[in-house]
Design a protein around this nucleic acid. Structure first.
Lengths: 120, 120
DNA sequence: CAAATACATGAGAGCATGTTCATGTATTTG
DNA sequence: CAAATACATGAACATGCTCTCATGTATTTG
């Protein structure tokens, strides 16, 4: 470990010029980073991404989403809860079914950008 | 639990029409979903997002990144490893320092799209 | 009204992840 | 060459997450 001058965080010696610049611009605030991280985390799960890929085409009820993915209603319902909390999906009740759909275009934008990156 | 006709995954009864449609289009393959999920997961951490926010402006060495975020060299180095593995950053060696920079424009595209979403 | 259906949710098991600590490698300096 | 610097990495602990299981609620049906 770089046991240098300080305890708190290996205070830099290498190039304080850059450190100063960084300090003046400042990194993303911890709170904002936390919030943004939580959002990306919702997209960091295979099941939720597969749900999004289905909902990209049309709306579906929980039951069909579950059978399409070969998973239990319960597991899907839990994941839809996360997608709802992140405002990535909306829903509509019809009788005893609940139909889910993508909330806006942002999701697909992200989806597309990442596909590009992974296909390089 | 919805103990219905099947064991494997609560096979749908509600609307097999939709289920059939979903099956024909088909969700994102599990492998692809896994890979995409792993990528999003790299962006799901506050520290890595703060690193990206710093590198958005200019390149920095590990030491300065660490002191800017008030964290140890070690922690930052571990996180840079994850960013490297996801091909989100590139690096350049100069003497005993290693300068990191963003690899391409995709990262900032994602960053921007998510900010829009969170600011609504 | 009772049974069945469609979905939601709390608790817990099993697994993954970020940080710290200790150590290792490469480069520079005295 | 020896010491110091800048960074990388393995192990381990603490934390968080996804799924299963059990149960609860709302709506429809017989």
């Amino acid at each position: 470990m770089a046991k240098t001058t300080s305890k708190k965080a290996d205070e830099a010696i290498c190039s304080e010029r850059h450190a100063a610049t960084a300090a003046s611009i400042g990194p993303l605030a911890v709170d904002d980073a936390q919030r943004m991280g939580e959002f990306f985390n919702v997209l960091a799960d295979p099941t939720r991404l597969r749900l999004i890929s289905l909902l990209a085409a049309e709306e579906f009820c929980v039951c069909d989403l579950a059978s399409s993915l070969g998973m239990t209603d319960s597991a899907i319902s839990h994941q839809l809860r996360a997608l709802r909390a992140a405002r990535l999906v909306s829903y509509r009740k019809e009788g005893r079914q609940v139909f889910y759909r993508l909330h806006d275009h942002h999701v697909l934008d992200l989806y597309q950008t990442v596909r590009e990156h992974l296909d390089e």
